[in-house]
Design a protein around this nucleic acid. Structure first.
Lengths: 146, 146
DNA sequence: GTATATGCAAAGCATTTGCATTAAA
DNA sequence: TTTAATGCAAATGCTTTGCATATAC
């Protein structure tokens, strides 16, 4: 059984079959799944699990910092299980395929005081946009990829 | 009358009262308005204009590059009229107040080949997240600000 | 036993769309 | 006169919520 499930239980998270199965799906696949995809995979193991519960669980995991909700400008949110390693995203503008890229230009993290407008700076989100290899050649539309 | 309206007409854009009024609202206010806000302001001048038309018009302007659709992770899209000057955004995570900040760490625009995963790079979006001055002190929730 | 999670179905929000009507060119 | 834009209301896609039931602790 996964470390994620352990960690959550020790934090006093009430463990149910539904929550366990969601945690296991996330732990198994390191990807960028949508709520629907998590739901589909969770159902393979536990057919009764509802989409509402998947959403609730993903939101809780996000609050606990165990998962990162990535909102591409198009389409549904993706849930990123890679929370330990700092990274950024590269998204295909055509098919929404998403990959992790690793910090280059970390210096962007600094915004000079003169540019802070009184804000307390918490984070920077950097999203690279492009066309993935398949979309550079293909004509027809494709389904999004994790 | 604004230069925006002129420019659009010379590009062969069919000019209607609705479109003109939307263009004028955008030109008057340099801000980051939502579609609803644009609609409200447009109605002050032309009460019959519909929300659907505002959406259609904003989308067309975005395709023409006259406006930039900014999707904050929370809430509706903001339409940014500042398209000439390269800049980035700083968003309050609490009230969604949004300000422009000016390119620092432009070098982020480069993603080394080794990190490109076969993608053709088109753009980078950099969004700084923080707490605005008001939210740093205030307790109660506030309405979003342009 | 009690607090909390679940499933369902309905509501929500932002946005798009179909279609008959109207108006710009 | 032709081609395209409008308004409306309904449909869409994603996500949240209310509430009665079920269940982990």
């Amino acid at each position: 059984m996964g470390m994620l499930v352990e960690r959550l239980r020790t934090r006093g998270w009430r463990m149910t079959p539904q929550r366990r199965v969601v945690a296991e799906v996330l732990e198994g696949r390191h990807g960028h799944l949508t709520a629907e995809e998590v739901h589909a995979l969770a159902r393979e193991r536990l057919p009764e699990v509802s989409l509402a519960t998947v959403y609730n669980t993903l939101n809780e995991l996000a609050v606990m910092g165990e998962v990162l909700a990535v909102s591409a400008s198009e389409g549904p949110k993706r849930y990123d299980t890679n929370v330990s390693e700092p990274h950024q995203h590269l998204v295909c503008v055509r098919c929404q395929a998403l990959v992790d890229v690793h910090p280059v230009g970390q210096d962007t993290l600094g915004l000079p005081d003169a540019e802070r407008h009184g804000y307390e700076l918490l984070d920077v989100e950097v999203v690279f946009k492009g066309l993935c290899a398949e979309c550079r050649t293909a004509e027809p539309e494709r389904a999004p990829k994790a």
